[in-house]
Design a protein around this nucleic acid. Structure first.
Lengths: 227, 227
DNA sequence: TAACTTATAGTCAATATGACTATAAGTATT
DNA sequence: AATACTTATAGTCATATTGACTATAAGTTA
């Protein structure tokens, strides 16, 4: 490390990465060194003098977990006085939504392990990481209603049922199937692929894909999924 | 200053305070010292080791402008590499919405003057303050549609027309009067005060007030003003 | 072939929307 | 005092959206 990329002593980054395949998951890393060695925590680290906050977030996430080429969104800076032991540290939290299947997890740098955790299996995390995570869950619930963002979490081809399960598991509510279908299909956001799912022990559902043009338009314009 | 509240060298706070009376305004302070002496900028300053980010924001805003007892909401941390000259500084931006009439502006601390600026009269600001302000405007436009927050900006008693002008000036769109009335009145958010405005040279409009119970409920629940 | 499971289609009353028109209640002008 | 403005408020109407359902279709497994 040359003098230019020495770390800033009091600003860190933490990432909350939500993943989805059949259910919602969160990405955690196990600390391989330091005072909290062995503990699971949000992927995070120090920023250096020669990078922006955003660059730091991408670098740290990649080094620790192997996850890259995703869209990281800044969420909030956490700056309670004693959130970090023995030292005053402000952390800037980022968050993202990905399909778990798309990424090979590779523990690196100071991380000895990386794993997807179900929301109800998340252990007690160091510092204020549980608080950050809680905040991220609420953020996700809001976001999903105002941006067609939930779709990031699904495979390229998906059924309406998968989409419904996604919304149900994020919002923690039960939705009426026919009405959900009608609403989504009327938004013109999906392209019918004229394909069906395979290897299911019941009537196979149609597969859909995003209509990325409509998707981008809706992202710009007001999008409200009032479920 | 004792050793406990010495400043952190690389983290600052900046506040974007939106005000409204008849139109939308932004609060700026004039620097009374330092390299940008004489320039107008967002109210901002350094955080100290003995306060949280939120506390720092309230303190700094009060010291510079005299504005206190408002709800400050953290917006985003800005951390581009060269946003600040000669030094690496990450700033955490806060924002708020207030009624201009409720606050007496008092320039203090390092500020030689404080003033409300109309959006189109805002000068070139130092650092990345124009960028922060742009971000805040977009944030405000989004927020106003998903929270009944616009009401913070009006006097206690107001007419439906004032409310409409408020939304029009934030969203920069024209709204249909009868439809706007119908929509707002059906939300059950307003209490008819059975009073009328005075000293207008045309038919006087009814005055309304918030129904703060409904207001709080809507704040919790999904609120969507789809204008 | 029947029973089961999930997908998909459709019904219907109630409500909300957008684009208007109409009237009411004042002030200002002649 | 009558008329012209101005803005507030009320109402219309065709169309679209919602929520709560029921019905049927298309497959699997027993």
């Amino acid at each position: 490390m040359n003098s230019m990329n020495r770390i800033m002593e009091d600003i860190s980054i933490d990432c909350v990465i939500f993943g989805f395949t059949n259910d919602l998951k969160v990405l955690l890393v196990q600390h391989g060194e330091g005072i909290s060695k062995g503990k699971w925590a949000l992927p995070g680290g120090w920023i250096t003098y020669d990078e922006s906050l955003d660059q730091a977030a991408y670098r740290i996430l990649y080094l620790l977990t192997g996850v890259k080429d995703i869209f990281l969104d800044q969420m909030k800076a956490f700056g309670a006085k004693n959130r970090f032991p023995d030292k005053r540290v402000v952390t800037v939290a980022y968050y993202s939504l990905v399909k778990t299947e798309d990424y090979d997890l590779v523990a690196g740098f100071t991380a000895s392990d990386v794993k997807w955790f179900k929301p109800d299996e998340i252990p007690r995390l160091p510092y204020d990481h549980n608080e950050i995570l809680e905040y991220a869950f609420r953020q996700l619930q809001n976001k999903v209603r105002h941006e067609p963002v939930g779709f990031n979490l699904l495979p390229e081809k998906f059924t309406l049922h998968q989409l419904q399960v996604l919304y149900e598991s994020i919002l923690r509510i039960k939705l009426d199937k026919p009405n959900f279908r009608r609403k989504i299909l009327n938004m013109n956001l999906l392209m019918d692929l004229n394909e069906k799912q395979k290897n299911v022990s019941h009537r196979a559902a149609k597969l859909y894909q995003f209509n990325s043009e409509t998707y981008d338009t809706l992202k710009e314009k007001k999008f409200v999924l009032d479920l």
